[in-house]
Amino acid sequence: MLPGVGPKTAQRLALYLIKRSDKEVEDLAQAILNAKKQVGLCRVCFHLSAEPVCSICSNPHRDRNIICIVSDSRDVIALEKTREYRGLYHVLGGTISPMAGIGPEQLHIESLVRRVTKEKVAEIIIAISPSVEGETTTLYIGQLLKPFTKVTRIAFGLPMGGDLEYADEVTLARALEGRRELE
């Protein structure tokens, strides 16, 4: 029932846990329970957080002029790993998908607009994957926020260290679309 865990791994984990001491297993169970009980959503950016306001939003060293919009908390974690980005985030909690019954109302968009209009934000970076639903969401947010601030989106294209000749056509076409002038 856990994502990413197949029957073989599940069996391995179960056998491992059975061999551990009662104390160790109890600690693990308690840790899972605590995480479940304590972790909620940051009331500013909706990233996972044990506090009402997450550690990124409350960090005085972060650049408050830039907000990066992502669809999921996983994307925040991935971007944080790069240590390249020093601004704030806003987690939408999904992408627009009528098939799944998700419209703009079901996403954290209203709060985003409030944030952008209230605080002086210099730039919005949209970092949503380029699926059909992701593109639609990007389009929507772009239209919504353009009157208030500069809106950019991250580039999609070739992986570093990848040779052009090995890139697939879809990626190449996208990379061409997002080309830039040499500085």
Binding site: P98, P104, T136, L139, Y140
Partner: peptide, 11 residues
């Protein structure tokens, strides 16, 4: 929101 349809029109 019928505005949402405009997004899908564009797509």
């Amino acid at each position: 929101d019928r505005q949402q349809l405009a997004l899908w029109d564009a797509q």
